[in-house]
Amino acid sequence: MGKFFRTIFLVDLFQGLWVTFRNQNPKYIYTEQYPAERPEVAERYRGAPRLNINPDNGETLCIACNLCALACPETLIVVGSERNEQTRRKELTTFTYDLSRCMFCGLCEDACPVDALELTQDFELASYTRDGAIWDRQMLEEGPKPTQYKC
């Protein structure tokens, strides 16, 4: 009998629909409207690399110790340095970072003794050419400049 009424009044159907409607609560929306809305990534996000510069004098923090290059499993970092005869210190000349092979594991960042190399929150790394994925020192210091879309 109960079964009969359940069928007549479509109880099962409404039960099912209730589940559907319950899940239409806007707080369950996870889809990000990406170019229009930029997602917030975590503070520790390991994205595009950056070579930090000292904000006071604009010089690079990197001491050209080569530790990041040694730490990297993919050996994709090449540090070029030159010995400065006056200060008798190594100075950074070039720094190449091949993003196309990077797996953003963070080992280079951990290895850096002066926090010069850092993986930042920038995540837009696409480029039109393969060469575009190889970043030089200037690019690393300035960071990527992704196009921002407005809707």
Partner: peptide, 14 residues
């Protein structure tokens, strides 16, 4: 999200 907050990566976390 917890992974991302903790270590900065979502899938291949290391």
């Amino acid at each position: 999200k917890i992974f991302e907050n903790y270590c900065g990566a979502r899938l291949t976390t290391h």
